[in-house]
Each structure stands twice: as C-alpha cells, then as structure tokens.
Computed example of a mutant assay.
Amino acid sequence: MFIEPAIDLTVHHKPTSFSDRFAFGFTKLLRFCADTFFAKRYGHRAIVLETVAAVPGMVGATLNHLKCLRRMKDDRGWIRTLMEEAENERMHLMTFIEIAKPTAFERFVIIAVQWVFYIGFFVLYLISPKTAHRVVGYFEEEAVISYTHYLAEIDEGRSANVPAPAIALRYWKLPATATLRDVVLVVRADEAHHRDVNHAFSNELQGVAVDAEALAPYPVHDESVCIRNHAA
C-alpha cells in the first residue's frame, strides 16, 4: 500500500540579503519563462526542468570534491548528498520521459538550456557557493508548487492518471498498482527535501546553525543519506 510522504508545502526562505534577493529574483525570472513556454503542460515542463535541476548537484559535488583535495580536508557528507541529489533529479527525468514523450523541439531546448545553465551555475558556484545553494533552494520551492499544481490537474481530471512506469516502481519501491499521481507525490517529496537541504547548506555557509531535524524526510529510495555538517 502506498503511503503519501508527509512534507510541509508552505516552507519559504524569506530573502534577507543581497545574495538571497538575487537568488530569489533569478528563480522568479526562470519561473516566468517556464510558465510562458509550458503553461499547464506539466509533464513536458518536468522533462525540460528536470534536466536543469540535475545540474546543480553535480556541479556542487565536483567543486566540493576538488576543494577537499586541495585543502586535504574531509567534506563531512556534502559530496555524497549532492551526488545523490543529481542522481535523484536524473531519475525524475527518466520517469517523465516515459510519461510525456518529449518532442524533437523539446529535446533541442533541453540541450541548449543545459549547456547555458551548466556554465552559468558553475561560474556562480565558483563566485558564491552560498548564493548557488540558495538559488537551488528557491528552485525547489517552485518545484514543490509546480508538482502541487500537477496533482490538482490529475485530481480534477485534466491530466490522465496513467499507470506509473516500471522505472518509477523500481526506483521509489512503489506498489505495482501505483499511478502517475503516486509518482508526482514522491517526486514532490524529493523536491521538498532538496529544498530544505540546499537552504540549509546556504545557511551554513553564512554561519547560521542548521537543525537537521527540521528537514523534510528523505525520500524512500535511500534513507541512509542525510544532511551533514560541512567542513569549512
């Protein structure tokens, strides 16, 4: 039997600095572009946006890995957490490809957006890791909102509640009777956890204490990964 993950849908980090306001404004700009381009085609929106969402974790893991090598210090869990985030977002993409079937044009958009975003985010992380993590935190806040809207589309009959693809059943350990609605619920829970972790990482880099107990529960596919203190 599938049990809906319990998460807080109301979490929002109020911008308190120039770095926060930049991250929030940048996120809202991208949200406007996504809303304009995709409207309520949530499956297709997910395909394009998940290719972008899988970039920050890999960039952050790579740069933290290199920094730890240079400084000869332990990362205290950040690298594994960020790698898991990147892998998780990639699995979101693989799942929605099975559901929405991207067009040739959307595949072109994916290639173009990924290259531009990868380079931009890489440079941002080099300049200000705390801003980069705040950007991801706000991205994930918007993702939670988008998937909540997607659930409403399914519940109100505007999007078909098709059977969950096999890849989703395996990854999230869903029952054989699981549907698209169940997939959206676990994906939204993933995004809520990434939201909380990246806001927490940004807070740590600003010297703010982090309460690991306040994070959204980690997704069911790998409960062993959790936030850890970062080595300065």
Rank of each mutant, 00 (worst) to 15 (best):
residue 197 V to S: 01
residue 59 V to P: 11
residue 61 A to F: 11
residue 205 L to R: 02
residue 185 L to V: 10
residue 80 R to E: 14
residue 77 G to L: 08
residue 176 A to L: 06
residue 200 A to Y: 03
residue 228 R to H: 15
residue 53 A to R: 02
residue 111 I to M: 09
residue 49 L to K: 10
residue 180 L to I: 04
residue 34 A to G: 00
residue 53 A to P: 05
residue 123 V to M: 11
residue 196 D to N: 04
residue 183 V to D: 07
residue 39 A to W: 11
residue 166 A to V: 06
residue 65 H to T: 15
residue 11 V to W: 09
residue 49 L to E: 15
residue 166 A to Q: 08
residue 6 A to E: 15
residue 219 P to V: 01
residue 148 T to V: 04
residue 32 F to S: 03
residue 47 I to K: 01
residue 118 Y to Q: 12
residue 130 K to W: 07
residue 224 S to W: 00
residue 134 R to S: 09
residue 199 H to Y: 13
residue 190 D to M: 01
residue 62 T to W: 15
residue 20 D to V: 01
residue 24 F to V: 02
residue 92 H to V: 10
residue 189 A to E: 03
residue 20 D to Y: 01
residue 76 R to Q: 15
residue 94 M to K: 14
residue 120 G to T: 11
residue 157 G to W: 08
residue 161 N to E: 08
residue 53 A to E: 10
residue 37 F to Q: 02
residue 169 L to H: 12
residue 121 F to E: 08
residue 143 A to P: 05
residue 129 P to Y: 08
residue 215 L to P: 04
residue 194 H to W: 03
residue 195 R to W: 01
residue 3 I to N: 07
residue 175 P to C: 07
residue 214 A to K: 12
residue 196 D to R: 03
residue 46 A to S: 11
residue 12 H to M: 08
residue 26 F to I: 03
residue 111 I to K: 14
residue 214 A to H: 00
residue 156 E to L: 07
residue 24 F to P: 01
residue 124 L to D: 05
residue 72 M to A: 10
residue 219 P to G: 04
residue 3 I to S: 11
residue 175 P to H: 09
residue 205 L to E: 06
residue 228 R to C: 14
residue 202 S to V: 00
residue 146 S to M: 14
residue 186 V to H: 13
residue 47 I to H: 02
residue 221 H to D: 07
residue 140 E to R: 06
residue 169 L to K: 15
residue 54 A to R: 10
residue 2 F to V: 06
residue 54 A to G: 06
residue 81 T to L: 13
residue 52 V to N: 04
residue 220 V to K: 11
residue 230 H to I: 14
residue 4 E to S: 12
residue 167 I to K: 13
residue 118 Y to H: 10
residue 169 L to I: 15
residue 21 R to H: 08
residue 62 T to E: 12
residue 30 L to A: 05
residue 148 T to I: 02
residue 22 F to L: 15
residue 161 N to R: 00
residue 225 V to S: 02
